[in-house]
Design a protein around this nucleic acid. Structure first.
Lengths: 216, 216
DNA sequence: AAGCTTCTTGACTGGATGGTCAAAATTGAT
DNA sequence: ATCAATTTTGACCATCCAGTCAAGAAGCTT
């Protein structure tokens, strides 16, 4: 599978003396930004290198100077995303006040869905296709973190500090409700009509909902 | 855009004497079933005619004898889906008991997500891409129905029969929570591990959640 | 400003993929 | 059994698209 590096490639992937010039840093960033835009709306297969190139304002061979190929761009984008995707969950503090911690987590996820809808859609696209490229991440990293969080939540339930609730479904519900506003933004926009932004009223609603759900 | 019908095509689309032989009915159905399988996991661009043909157990030219092309298969599939997609919402009875009606609606949606996950993912795929092919359906049919339902819900709130809640967000939340179990099944499976099916415990959780949310 | 390195690109290529077609096989009405 | 209509398919074709390459342009270093 592994092809010897061509003479012109200063590229990425598989560990290597990663010394990047100013221009490299800038252009790799431009390309990843363009890739986020294009991949998140058309999916991996639906996007073409020409689209990426046009969006990035570079020539196609130029893209391939900075990355080993379409796959490589996508992998890099996804890798960067996954790091930040776990962050909100990590911030839940088992020593904190249960309801506050859960509410804050929900709020952080909703913020991410509002401020980074493309990232959310990129992720959704991956999962929809059966998560072939991020299976490892989910099975290992995410699962571990969810399991730990579930233990924390169950502890809070056992102490009677929040109403009895299945911790896994509680987490899934937060994911579903917050990401929905990003992933299904097109639908929401068409239903609510122009002049409304998808997330309008979402925070109040979700606060109300979880407030009612968690009250002991 | 419209090409004159080729001599061999007994095909579909744009209104036409739709007389179908037994074989036609059967094979069109087989093709649509295969298309559901393939399109729902790979998306429109990600699916190839060869995949469709293999999945359907027919030759590629044979597919194109029954449909005008990839696009036509996809359109037909989606059209059939949209009809049934609205059904659960239509069944909400403004004269019924508010909590029962909403609970039943949630249950119907959850059932659809459990029994027809591929349909759910096909739909999700469309919306994710910005709903280009079903914009009209959403803006016209779905929106109308949602608006009517919202009026019903608001009436129930005003009568004090359910707790005050934004009707649109209530509907969105049901969509988000039920479809999540189909659309993100891959993620849920990886987190919960084998031996669990994605919907396990979902009904109890959602009943609990909406029971708490709606109690006056 | 010379000369080396990094960056950029026009012109390709090979393979995948949507779609065509004419001829062969099958079906069904008589 | 006959024969016309329907169905099926192998062999194509045209286009799209990821990726290559060699040569030129721009940056750096001295």
């Amino acid at each position: 599978m592994n092809v010897p590096r061509s003479s012109t490639a200063r590229n990425s992937s598989s560990a290597r003396p990663v010394t990047r010039s100013r221009i490299q840093k800038r252009n790799r960033q431009i390309i990843l930004e363009a890739a986020l835009e294009v991949f998140s709306t058309h999916g991996f297969r639906g996007a073409t290198l020409d689209q990426l190139a046009t969006e990035a304002g570079l020539s196609k061979p130029n893209l391939l100077y900075y990355f080993d190929g379409k796959e490589d761009i996508h992998r890099e984008l996804l890798t960067q995303l996954l790091d930040t995707w776990l962050a909100p969950l990590r911030l839940i503090n088992p020593q904190g006040d249960p309801r506050t911690e859960i509410m804050e987590y929900m709020r952080r996820k909703l913020e991410m869905s509002r401020d980074f809808p493309r990232e959310s859609r990129l992720f959704a696209n991956e999962i929809l296709q059966g998560a072939p490229r991020i299976e490892g991440f989910i099975r290992d990293d995410l699962r571990l973190l969810v399991d730990q969080t579930a233990i924390t939540l169950r502890g809070w339930v056992d102490q009677g500090r929040i109403a009895p609730v299945d911790p896994y479904h509680l987490i899934f519900s937060i994911w579903a409700l917050t990401q929905h506003y990003a992933d299904f933004a097109a639908q929401i926009a068409l239903i609510r009509g122009a002049g409304h932004e998808p997330h309008e009223g979402a925070e109040a609603f979700l606060e109300h909902l979880y407030s009612r759900l968690l009250a002991p």
